[in-house]
Nucleic acid binder design. Structure first.
Lengths: 169, 169
DNA sequence: GTCTATATGCCGATAGAC
DNA sequence: GTCTATCGGCATATAGAC
């Protein structure tokens, strides 16, 4: 984003540069729209996962979706993680509201699933899960090795199963 | 870095802008020097940790050091993680050698500790550990909440102990 | 070695023809 | 609504006095 000029955007969109300003007053507005789009996509994903029967299945479903895009993660990094990291640097040391639109909903959603499993520390488990994914995505991108993400996601599946089993008895 | 102009660097260093070019031919050279400095600092840390008696103690030592800087992580993010992420975006989709100077040595060092514990999947464990830390640092920064890092690091201490105990019997 | 002045180029943003 | 031309500013980088 910081390295993406409006000329790049215009070229990718196949329109002249100045045209962008008819739709977005400033570059910040465009960024905000992109963030909102990402956020909306996440929301739709959560709604789709909601159709799965059990919280355990829903968590596995999330992990599956996050694993599917492993190739692009190796090349470009996790969209949520990289976007968040960049937005976090824009507003000095104060939290940026845009950034929190991305990761917080996913944490909240995961927390809800763990809570439905009668997990005592649902918030903790949710943060651990998302952090493990984002960290794995960071290493995957840095090493340009999709296998890193695959193996880490496999371990996360196992962890979810273990926790789910220990809470079920 | 991408948002840090040479004017910023000059101001922080208390020297005029043009002066920087006497020491560094280009901004890239300056960045490379900064990366090398970070890399060297990590190496020194590993050497200090090497003095601890057991691999388990050394791993705990690493986690302690990473936890100590929690406040700055909440404000600025993990230096290694943010630097790596930014360097990763500079050279298109091919792996940047500079970026790998930062995280790979830490993974390698952790792998060595796990291997000394007679851990079968030492590399996997090392990647899991560093990924968990980097992910926790990312969330900590995004949420501007040092407690996130603290609690996650606490869990990592427990995991190291569990693994160490299961391998010791 | 240190500093000032300046060249060069890209980026975000605007004005206005069509 | 779409496009061209252009402004103002900032960033990297250089030239050259001291």
């Amino acid at each position: 984003m910081e390295r993406t000029s409006l000329a790049d955007v215009a070229e990718a969109a196949g329109v002249p540069v100045g045209n962008i300003y008819y739709y977005f007053k400033t570059k910040n507005d465009l960024v905000a729209a992109a963030v909102a789009a990402q956020s909306s996509e996440s929301t739709q994903l959560f709604q789709r996962l909601e159709r799965l029967g059990t919280p355990t299945e829903r968590l596995h479903g999330l992990l599956d979706v996050l694993t599917e895009v492993g190739g692009s993660v190796a090349e470009y990094g996790c969209p949520l993680g990289t976007l968040s990291a960049e937005l976090d640097k824009r507003n000095g040391t104060t939290a940026s509201p845009e950034s929190q639109q991305l990761l917080v909903p996913m944490i909240d959603w995961a927390e809800q699933q763990f809570a439905n499993l009668a997990c005592a520390d649902a918030r903790q488990q949710a943060i651990t899960l998302i952090a493990a994914y984002e960290g794995a995505a960071l290493l995957t991108h840095s090493l340009r090795d999709p296998d890193v993400l695959r193996s880490q996601m496999h371990q996360l599946h196992l962890r979810v199963d273990e926790l789910s089993a220990s809470l079920a008895h």
